[in-house]
Amino acid sequence: MWELVAGCADGEMVSPAHVCQAAVVAVAVDGAAVSVATRPDRRQRAHATDAVAALLEEQQFTLGEGPGIEAGTSGGQVLVADVSSPAGASRWPVFAPVATTAGVRAMFAFPLQVGAIRLGTLTLYRVMPGPLTAEQVADAVTLCRTAVAVMLAADRTSPDGATSDQGAWPLGGPGEGRIEVYQATGMVAVQLGVGLQDAFAALRARAFTDGVPLAVLARQVVDRRLRFHPDDLPEG
């Protein structure tokens, strides 16, 4: 799956846009979009493979309802075989007709998250109604992990502005999805007085500059052999 995403990037730095492209191929849908959850200090950014996917994102955001919104707030997947069904219409009374008019029948929204770190959603659509197969769901979940890894890596650029190859590994890859990494993220958040996402970025930045695997660094934090200080944080 990572090869597919990297192939979509074709030598460029992998971005959520490439994950969307890969999703269209791997999950056999007509379009895909990634929405980045708004943080207080940032505007909503979205990547969509086509105009319809972009419209779906925009309308959901504007109307405040839809599968993507629901997946983002609940942290669970929202898989809709047919938005135009009575169930769809009663669940999203304003959005469902909009989607149907745009020619969309099936929508599948997946949260992009690591525990309490909520990054956004991946939403796939199809013009034909019908559910995803278990394999397609599995592929979508793998793509979500890739998207999360890409988005978290984009948070952390080295001083010269380049990201390292290390950042390109999907979560659950070499040591990223380890329990001590989650625990250390929580500890570092308190040490620095920042949110989990920034704490995770700080952990990874440190692992990168020290040339130490993330899991090893996390172990040191969990064992209380390493502390982070607010002074260590780079400007910005």
Binding site: G115, A116, I117, I179, Y182, Q183, T185, G186, V190, L196
Partner: peptide, 15 residues
């Protein structure tokens, strides 16, 4: 995913 949230919260509480 809940399990991950719990690990993150454990870290915060422990610290």
């Amino acid at each position: 995913n809940s399990r991950v949230i719990i690990e993150q919260a454990k870290g915060m509480l422990a610290e």
